[in-house]
């Protein structure tokens, strides 16, 4: 109870403090440069000053936070990647040399590439299929809602859920994991799925596909509904069948959205960490970059240099998407 009360007090203080800044700073600005009941010249002057200052009052906290939490760390990670484990001594390229000479890195890099190919493709594919089909049935919204649901589940929660499905009992014991139960039912030999090298990666990927398909579905479904009915009706009149309409009329019209969904999931995949950590912690050849980085940060007191190097690799992989995004946003703003 006491914990709850203090938590509540801290919460209220945190939120109020933030609100107080915005109120206070604007109030102060209005007091310093009043624009009411003053001579016209003074109003004009004060107004100019206030208008110059105010955007930065509004933006200030955001800019500071973004700089401290995202911009500066990117720069500093880059710097740290040239330093030793404590970040004090310059070691040149030796972290990079270590990285490219380490088997573990190539293993996680290969796995990451697998994730990058499989997960966005599968999630977008299933999302598109489900979106198309649910749009045609009366209980489509309920179906969508259920398929979208895993989105709300944490990676770690999802890991428990799926670990339960992949559970393995040796010998003649009854299998309580669904997958093995099915295998046994069909007369197969039960397997310890998450320890089978290489293929276990796919069992981990299924979890993320399970989570992300709903996201792809929701967005693609909206895009599909945005396709003008006339184009489809015209295709029907032109004698196209269902599949032709889907692939030649509908899909080309939503290419842009498909690309957005794809890249969004790709970014997420690059950051995938929780699932691997919870399911295998990188054992049995399932290491990925993000988990490897986390490992190096804390393993044996931590090696900041090596951790930073892995982070830089992730960053480099993201940069093309970043540039594409900025270009898209700029084009959008000019269109306005």
């Amino acid at each position: 109870m006491a914990q709850l009360a203090s938590a509540l007090a801290i919460m209220i203080m945190g939120v109020l403090g933030c609100a107080a800044y915005f109120y206070g700073s604007n109030f102060l600005l209005d007091k310093l440069f009043p624009t009411k009941n003053r001579p016209y010249e003074q109003i004009a002057r004060n107004l100019r000053t206030a208008n110059m200052v105010r955007p930065w009052l509004f933006l200030g906290p955001a800019v500071l936070l973004l700089t401290f939490y995202l911009f500066y760390p990117v720069i500093d990670s880059f710097r740290l990647s040239f330093f030793d484990r404590t970040g004090d001594e310059f070691v040149g390229l030796s972290n990079y040399v270590w990285l490219f000479g380490s088997d573990e890195f190539f293993e996680s890099f290969r796995n990451n590439m697998l994730w990058l190919i499989v997960v966005p493709t599968a999630a977008t594919f299933f999302g598109l299929i489900i979106a198309t089909m649910t749009d045609r049935i009366w209980w489509g919204n309920i179906a969508k809602s259920l398929i979208f649901m895993p989105m709300a589940i944490s990676f770690i929660g999802a890991s428990v859920i799926w670990k339960f499905i992949y559970d393995f009992r040796s010998g003649g014991d009854a299998q309580i994991g669904l997958l093995n139960a099915i295998v046994v039912f069909f007369g197969g030999e039960p397997q310890n799925w998450i320890t089978i090298p290489f293929w276990n990666n796919f069992f981990l990927m299924i979890i993320l596909v399970w989570i992300q398909t709903g996201f792809a579905m929701v967005i693609l479904s909206a895009a599909l509904r945005g396709i003008p009915d006339e184009t489809i009706e015209a295709a029907v009149l032109d004698g196209a069948n269902g599949l032709q309409i889907f692939f030649k009329i509908m899909v080309p019209q939503i290419w842009g959205t498909i690309a957005v969904v794809w890249t969004t999931i790709t970014i997420l995949v690059l950051k995938v960490f929780d699932i691997v950590l919870a399911m295998t912690n990188g054992q049995w050849d399932t290491q990925v970059l993000a988990n490897q980085m986390f490992d190096w940060m804390f393993r044996g007191g931590g090696d900041f240099g090596r951790g930073a190097v892995v982070a830089i690799v992730i960053m480099v992989l993201v940069i093309p998407i970043m540039i594409w995004n900025i270009k898209r946003a700029n084009a959008e703003m000019e269109g306005r």
Partner: peptide, 11 residues
């Protein structure tokens, strides 16, 4: 009769 170039709309 008052130059209002720099006066905000409300005033």
């Amino acid at each position: 009769g008052q130059v209002v170039n720099d006066i905000p709309p409300a005033l």
